[in-house]
Design a protein around this nucleic acid. Structure first.
Length: 904
RNA sequence: GCAGGGGUCGCCCAGCCUGGUCAAAGGCGCAGGGCUUAGGACCCUGUCUCUUUGGAGUUCGUGGGUUCAAAUCCCACCCCCUGCACCA
């Protein structure tokens, strides 16, 4: 088998494409298609997962080009946000973990990576790397339009966008809670934390218990259990404070808690209180006015919640065990009925066999009971029979309404530590800027647009609709990060999901805008280009307007499935807010991820396969094929060495037929042509619907199997050049290098294959295909029979049924109903009623669906043609005989859908 | 809690929208055979149960229903996964 030098082919073909300017469409020439994929964030080299979205986009671009469109597929780099800044900081701090990843996975030497302490250098390093990878994988990108989202020209564009949003009343200011690091003095995302943990926010209820001159504050997830309160836990070994809130109420917290919470609520600390001072005191339960004792507990942590814990031993395993440890478990008051528990917490603790407060199983027991009660619990007090899930909300509202409780935000997955080592807290920001995605009118217009767009796969539309339903105010600025300064507050930077919503329009002018100085890019400049307001400043300015009008609207937007809940709805909504109706996007195409040997790729698993490594190893076309052919569009696809090498080997096998001298035309040539043409019928619709998996099955895997069968049936040399010429064009979008190569080298064409059209299906003979199915099933039957007989026969007989049986089967396929068939048959085939009824019954359900049998002549020709094949395969003489010429009793059972075989 | 997705023959997964050709494609695994010094790779065959070509019986989360006919349509229930934002 010929081994292909992919590397040589890729380089040669790349050069040719460059000469042809295949990727540089002329503005205004013919009917256009403008397609984009989500631009990358260059904080690492791309891996094969990124390759999937881009490959799908490129396949579409090339396919559209082969349909005669003038196609623009541009690319840029999204550098907005903080992760790259954080990364540069870490490099400066010589973060061992990060440097190790750079060395091991990204193949960047320590020396080199230690130089990348300027965020800009990081951006340039990785973007160059990514750009090279995109070229190597064969993306038809028009690089003349490349830009970075921190480019000053782009900044001006984004400022323009935000002024437009503000004019429409979609920008607003208000208070907002965010995860915060005191040491970093900034909001934190996962990239700012130790171990890349994403800090999760959660709201809990803080209940006030009358105590002395003020209130003890205890936070809880389960306000409804307040009715089962028996005591309050305080830790005698930690420091507490007495503080005053805005309303002048005295509140007690642990000292740490007060410090953390002072970032959320206004607190004035009055004095420190020792934990021991709470001993032997009592506080009042606001829900029922009962006095409960304060008990000392070492498990109460100073920096969790408020440092004061309410105790409900009937329903909280922790509280039960803690009370049991001091011999007071009998205090439990049951307030929730659930399952067949007597005393829920007690029963669960005993079921889990928990010894004391320090038992690690306690956590598990708590979770189990909480879930059970939340789902199936019913209140015994307050409102008898009320489900716990409802009571939780009601009691919370009730307590807050009576000023007996308030809500606070906590880190749900605490403790999370920042890079600097301090614990992440929640801070309230009073002057946060928002985009108001909750605006009703805006939402409605956007949903209307979405319902008219093409979304592939269709499920994505539902998800985006649902997202738009709950979308509300979205914080759009932050204090730090690369990107564009917020025009209405220069201390803020526009956040990354907010500056990437209409950037596709910028591509249409990105090449020419560089001719202008930044200060020229004022309001009127963009108003003219994108809205047609006013007059052009000069010729270039006028051309930019034309370019926008030519390329927009966007014909197809491609991204991973994960952007469905954020970027894509923003993309749609911002287009609706800014542009005229005729400029709104037309299609969204979504795809799933790539798994590596069945596992999610991640830095921690160390199983990231960089795209360029994969290309070097397997060749660009094989990688392209492997990442798109293995699964349905939205499903995750698995990349594995065995898949890639399997693809490569099959490809080499198929290409092997290219140069062979052609043999004579035989029946089996009609067969392979028929099968090929049948698949061709659905080719274009499969491309249009992104059924790339189906195309790969049809024209790669199954085609490969067909070739195998074809070769085994063919007596003379293969005769496949006609098919192969078509095959190259069919596969060209998916495997462009190989396709271009064979188009020009093997078939000696001058131009590029991408100026050709997809082949159209020709008429074919369906009967030949069905007759060949018969040959295949006969082949299987003979094999099975020989296996059963366990003896090699002298001769194999195949009996072609008599003509009247073909007529009978035709009648059956027309009537498709037992009684009618028997009626018709008794008139026509009276002598053979026994055969007819046996056959008809034997058909079972197939009676309802049977197709017309193939003509006897065709069956005869095909089986006689296959004689040589059978003989060779089974090593014995094969005799194909007509039923009427045979004296063998077995021959009488032969039918048009299953000719009888007889082994002698 | 809210939203979205899903439960298929050892595993992964297609089919269900447009009911019948579905005992249910494909891949992996496993078994046998071929090829090889051997292993790997590759090729062929088998892989729900019973059955000497036919065929029969039980299957598609659970329980109902519609239909001549349901993995496919309808209803109820159980279980699992993902996301919930200021983060790219």
């Amino acid at each position: 088998m010929a081994s292909i030098n992919f590397k040589d082919i890729e380089q040669k073909v790349s050069r040719f494409w460059e000469d042809q300017k295949l990727n540089q469409p002329e503005t205004g020439k013919g009917e256009k298609k403008f397609i984009t994929a989500a631009f990358p964030y260059p904080n690492s080299p791309q891996h094969i997962g990124h390759g999937r979205t881009y490959t799908i986009t490129d396949i579409y671009a090339r396919y559209l080009r082969m349909k005669g469109y003038n196609v623009l597929f541009p690319m840029a780099f999204h550098v907005t946000g903080t992760p790259i800044l954080a990364m540069a900081d870490r490099i400066r701090e010589k973060d061992e973990e990060l440097l190790d990843i750079f060395e091991r996975i990204y193949h960047i030497s320590r020396k080199e990576s230690e130089k990348l302490t300027d965020p800009k250098d990081l951006v340039m390093y990785f973007s160059k790397e990514i750009e090279q990878g995109m070229n190597e994988i064969g993306l038809m990108i028009d690089w003349r339009r490349k830009f970075y989202s921190f480019d000053v020209h782009f900044n001006k564009f984004i400022e323009w966008q935000f002024r437009k949003l503000k004019e429409k009343g979609l920008i607003m200011q208000g208070e907002h809670y965010i995860p915060w690091s005191i040491k970093l003095n900034s909001a934190v995302g996962s990239h700012d934390t130790k171990g890349d943990v994403d800090p999760q926010m959660e709201q809990v209820v803080a209940i006030k218990f009358k105590f002395n001159d003020g209130y003890l504050v205890a936070s809880t997830y389960r306000p409804e259990t307040i009715f089962g309160l028996t005591n309050i836990w305080v830790n005698p070994n930690i420091k507490y404070v007495k503080a005053k809130n805005k309303e002048g109420e005295i509140l007690y917290f642990s000292k740490d808690a007060a410090e953390i919470l002072s970032n959320q609520i206004d607190l004035e600390i009055i004095s420190e209180v020792d934990g021991k001072e709470f001993e032997n005191k009592k506080a009042t339960n606001p829900a029922n006015g009962e006095e409960v004792p304060l008990f000392p507990a070492s498990f109460v942590k100073s920096d969790v919640g408020t440092g004061i814990v309410m105790s409900v031993p009937a329903h909280a395993p922790f509280d039960y065990v803690a009370l049991r440890d001091i011999g007071k478990e009998n205090l439990s008051v049951k307030i929730i009925e659930v399952g067949n528990y007597g005393m829920p917490a007690k029963d669960v603790v005993e079921k889990f066999g928990i010894k004391d407060q320090n038992d690690p199983k306690l956590e598990e027991a708590t979770k189990a009971l909480y879930r059970e009660e939340a789902h199936n619990g019913k209140m015994l007090v307050y409102k008898k029979g009320l489900p716990v899930s409802k009571a939780k909300e009601e009691v919370k509202e009730m307590l807050i309404g009576k000023n007996q409780a308030f809500t606070i935000w906590i880190i749900a997955n605490a403790p999370v530590y920042s890079r600097e080592g301090d614990q992440i807290i929640i801070k309230k920001v009073n002057t946060q800027w928002f985009i108001n995605y909750g605006d009703k009118e805006w939402k409605d217009k956007s949903k209307k647009l979405l319902s008219g767009m093409s979304v592939i796969p269709e499920d994505g539309r539902k998800e985006m609709m649902a997202t738009m339903d709950w979308l509300d105010k979205k914080a759009c600025t932050r204090a730090k990060g690369l990107g564009t300064k917020f025009p209405f507050d220069q201390s803020q930077v526009i956040e990354s999901l907010s500056d990437s919503t209409i950037y596709m329009s910028f591509y249409t002018i990105a090449d020419k805008i560089k001719e202008f100085k930044p200060e020229e890019l004022d309001e009127s400049f963009f108003d003219y280009i994108f809205m047609g307001k006013g007059k052009p400043k000069n010729k270039t300015h006028e051309e930019m307007r034309k370019s926008f009008l030519y390329w927009y609207p966007l014909d197809s937007r491609h991204s991973g499935w994960d952007l469905v809940k954020n970027h894509l709805p923003f993309f749609i909504m911002n287009h609706c807010a800014i542009f005229e109706d005729r400029m709104l996007p037309r299609q969204i195409v979504l795809n799933g991820f790539v798994l590596m040997e069945g596992k999610k790729m991640s830095k921690s698993f160390g199983n990231i396969l960089p795209l360029r490594d994969a290309i070097r190893e397997y060749g660009a076309d094989v990688v392209r094929f492997s990442v798109v052919a293995g699964a349905e569009l939205i499903e995750d696809t698995d990349f594995s060495v065995s898949v890639a090498s399997g693809v490569r080997e099959r490809l080499e096998y198929i290409l092997d037929f290219m140069e062979k001298e052609e043999g004579e035309e035989e029946i089996i040539d009609r067969w392979i042509n028929a099968k090929f043409n049948r698949k061709l019928e659905s080719l274009e619709s499969n491309y249009d619907k992104f059924e790339l998996r189906q195309i790969s099955l049809d024209f790669f895997y199954e085609f490969y199997n067909d070739l195998n069968w074809y070769v085994s049936r063919k007596r003379t040399n293969p005769r496949l050049n006609g098919i192969m010429r078509k095959w190259a064009r069919i596969m060209a979008p998916i495997m462009p290098f190989i396709a271009e190569h064979i188009w020009r080298e093997k078939f000696k064409n001058k131009g590029t294959i991408f100026s050709e059209r997809m082949p159209k299906p020709e008429k074919y003979d369906e009967d030949v295909v069905r007759a060949e199915e018969l040959v295949k099933s006969l082949n299987d039957d003979i094999e099975r029979l020989m296996g059963i007989v366990k003896k090699k026969p002298n001769k194999i007989y195949i009996y072609i049924p008599e003509q009247w049986k073909f007529e009978l089967f035709e009648d059956i396929s027309r009537i498709r109903e037992m009684k009618g068939i028997m009626k018709e048959a008794s008139a026509k085939y009276n002598d053979n009623m026994e055969f007819v009824s046996r056959v008809a019954k034997g058909l079972g359900n197939r009676l309802y669906t049977m197709e017309k049998p193939i003509p006897r002549k065709i069956m005869e020709d095909q089986l006689r043609d296959a004689k040589a094949f059978f003989s060779k395969r089974f090593g014995v003489e094969v005799i194909v005989e007509n039923e009427e010429n045979s004296s063998n009793e077995k021959a009488k059972g032969s039918t048009p859908i299953r000719p009888t075989i007889y082994l002698e």
